[in-house]
């Protein structure tokens, strides 16, 4: 079961035009990354939080949990950014070990902080898209921006097949678990490997049956389906444009005043 996927079908923003959501996500993402501004990060985090939790209806606790997913990567990378080994001490901190210093400059620390801020803000943009837009709608948007047909067809099929395989995998693992297949590390690895092999075999069989079914309905190499798209609401487009312009203005203003 993929919770994010489940949530997006229940989102209050599900039926908002997908292209508008996509455009908002991408533009806001780019602004965050290019400016690395902490003020922008704060504004974006707030905006996405309100949109996703209040308008979208995602439970706040769950949203926080999701926002923490990249934390491990972020922490590790930050560590790599703010620790240097040098003969000369730098101005933020310096710890002497033997004849070397563990040190970093204030500029670096500040840089790392901005990475963290913009990182979280960027992730919140990704979540805005993921938690409020169905994959089917995302594929529809990709089609409109001329993503190659082969990729689109594969994505459509893969998205459906993922759930079929997850059910099978889950059933096999449960059957193994009740026979103590996952008690210790060694047996766990073995059981998982056997499950994966069994899953692959069943996946292969199903793929054959699925092709028979597609052929039976006239499949000739092109996966034709109806595209459902809701017209974009003028107010929504205007709101997005106003937001992005305001964001850029705030960033410019902050830079002029001298705050980040």
């Amino acid at each position: 079961m993929i919770l994010i996927d489940k949530m997006c079908y229940r989102s209050g923003l599900r039926y908002m035009n997908a292209e508008v959501k996509f455009a908002y996500t991408v533009v806001t993402l780019l602004i965050c990354i290019v400016s690395r501004s902490l003020i922008a990060a704060g504004i974006v985090l707030l905006a996405n939080g309100i949109l996703t939790v209040k308008r979208g209806g995602i439970p706040f606790a769950l949203y926080v949990k999701y926002m923490l997913i990249p934390l491990a990567f972020l922490l590790m990378s930050t560590l790599a950014l703010i620790v240097n080994i040098s003969r000369e001490p730098l101005d933020a901190y310096a710890i002497l070990i033997g004849s070397w210093y563990l040190t970093s400059s204030k500029v670096s620390l500040w840089f790392a902080l901005r990475q963290i801020g913009s990182g979280f803000a960027s992730v919140s943009c990704l979540y805005f898209l993921a938690l409020n837009t169905t994959m089917t709608d995302i594929l529809g948007t990709l089609k409109k921006i001329h993503c190659p047909q082969l990729l689109l067809e594969l994505m459509l099929l893969i998205y459906r097949f993922i759930f079929v395989l997850m059910d099978t995998a889950s059933a096999i693992m449960t059957a193994q678990r009740v026979r103590l297949g996952y008690e210790k590390l060694r047996t766990s690895l073995h059981s998982f490997g056997e499950m994966a092999a069994a899953l692959f075999i069943r996946a292969w069989k199903r793929s054959n049956a699925l092709y028979d079914a597609l052929e039976s309905r006239g499949y000739d190499g092109e996966l034709r389906v109806l595209e459902e798209s809701r017209a974009a609401d003028r107010k929504e487009i205007a709101a997005v444009i106003v937001f992005e312009i305001s964001l850029i203005f705030v960033i410019w203003l902050a830079k002029r005043i001298g705050i980040e």
Binding site: L157, S207, L210
Partner: peptide, 25 residues
């Protein structure tokens, strides 16, 4: 043409395998 569903299943397979947590690890 028949291998289209096989290719897609393989993709789904890789995704599912990567998304499953291995118990006891």
């Amino acid at each position: 043409q028949r291998i289209i569903t096989l290719i897609a299943m393989s993709g789904a397979f890789v995704f599912v395998i990567s998304s499953l947590k291995i118990p006891s690890v």
